[in-house]
Every structure is written in structure tokens, then in C-alpha cells.
């Protein structure tokens, strides 16, 4: 049995294994562990509470359904779940042809402040902290370009339109931002 695993150290993989067997307690614990992240990401992309809940539910449904085929060698559970969420949210945006509000500096300043939930593992929090700091240190226009592409799924052309800059400039900002973040994360590894 897994009693209220959202609060304890039950590994994600163990929860997934139990979910694969139809263990609803494990499934509920898994949802509670990640619902703030999944819903928050969906809400960021969609900027609409109802649509965000639809996407968040769908993301968890898929995770639950595919729990038994999750391959831990391909990365962390959280990344897998959030990638599913991001792709669903971007699909939903494109289907609605709506244009959600882009990330303004306020959102990203809050990001940089290091807010996070208590359920996260120490390992995740540590590398996330580094990324928060690195993001905060990016020039604002690079931070926006990275966020628009990486979180909001905007292509370089869409970033260019959003920022009213030439395509080449948008590409350069995305690349420069990611390269700096990569350097920051690489420093952490060494």
C-alpha cells in the first residue's frame, strides 16, 4: 500500500508501477504530487482556467494509461509528464487558434524568485534552483524568447511576430538564451 504518497519519498517510478496495476491510491498520490506543475504549465500556455483543467486532466490520463510503458532510462517522470502537458496545451492553443497572453516579465520575475512546491525531491529542486538563477540573469528579451519557444511552443517566426523583430533576431535570441542556460546547468554538473 502507498498511503498518501504525495507527501512521502515514494519514488515516482514506484507510483507509476502501482498505477499501471490499477492502484488508484497510487494514482491519486501521483496526481497530487504533480498537479500544481501540470495545471500551472497548462494555465501558462492556455491562459484559460477551463481549458487548462481539460489539458491537465488529459495529461494525467495519458500518464496513468501509459504508466506501465514509462521508460526511466529516457528521463525523469516529471519531465515526461510535463512534456505531455506542454504538447497537449500547445495543440489546444493551435486548435483554438487563440492567442494567449505571452509571458511578461512579471511572470518570469516570479519564476526567478524560486517558488516551488513542498512535494518536490531535493534533487529536482536543486537543479531547478540553478535554472531559476540562470533565467533571472538572462537579458529580458532572451528570457522571453526562450519562454515563448520552450514553454509556449512558439516557433521562431511566431516569436518574431510577437516581439516585432526580424526572424533572424528571434532565432538568435532563442539560441543565445538556451546556450547560456545550458552553460549554467553544465557548471552545476561539474
Amino acid at each position: 500500500m502507498i498511503p498518501d504518497a504525495s507527501q512521502d519519498a515514494t519514488p515516482d517510478e514506484a507510483l507509476l508501477a502501482a498505477m499501471a496495476l490499477g492502484d488508484e491510491t497510487a494514482g491519486l498520490a501521483f496526481v497530487r504530487r504533480y498537479q500544481r506543475r501540470v495545471y500551472g504549465l497548462a494555465l501558462s500556455v492556455l491562459n484559460d482556467a477551463t481549458a487548462a483543467e481539460d489539458v491537465a486532466q488529459e495529461a494525467f490520463l495519458r500518464a496513468w494509461k501509459h504508466a506501465s510503458v514509462f521508460d526511466h532510462r529516457r528521463g525523469a517522470v516529471a519531465t515526461w509528464l510535463l512534456t505531455i502537458t506542454r504538447n497537449l496545451a500547445i495543440d489546444a492553443v493551435r486548435a483554438r487558434r487563440s492567442v494567449p497572453v505571452g509571458p511578461d516579465d512579471l511572470v518570469w520575475m516570479r519564476l526567478a524568485s524560486g517558488e516551488r512546491s513542498v512535494e518536490e525531491s531535493v534533487v529536482v529542486a536543486d537543479s531547478t534552483d540553478r535554472l531559476h538563477v540562470a533565467l533571472a540573469e538572462l537579458p529580458a528579451e532572451q528570457r522571453r524568447a526562450v519562454a515563448l519557444a520552450g514553454i509556449y511552443g512558439r516557433t521562431a517566426a511566431e516569436v518574431a511576430a510577437h516581439e516585432q523583430i526580424p526572424l533572424g533576431t528571434a532565432k538568435t535570441r532563442i539560441r543565445a538564451g538556451i546556450t547560456k542556460l545550458r552553460a549554467a546547468l553544465a557548471m552545476e554538473a561539474s
Binding site: 498537479q35 495545471y39 500551472g40 517558488e115 529536482v124 531547478t128 533565467l135
Partner: peptide, 11 residues
Amino acid sequence: ALLMVAPQAEP
């Protein structure tokens, strides 16, 4: 990693 720093929100 970027997805892990996206804003969080209580559903």
C-alpha cells in the same frame, strides 16, 4: 529542465 521552472498553480 525549462518545463520544471514553468509557473505552478493550484488546480
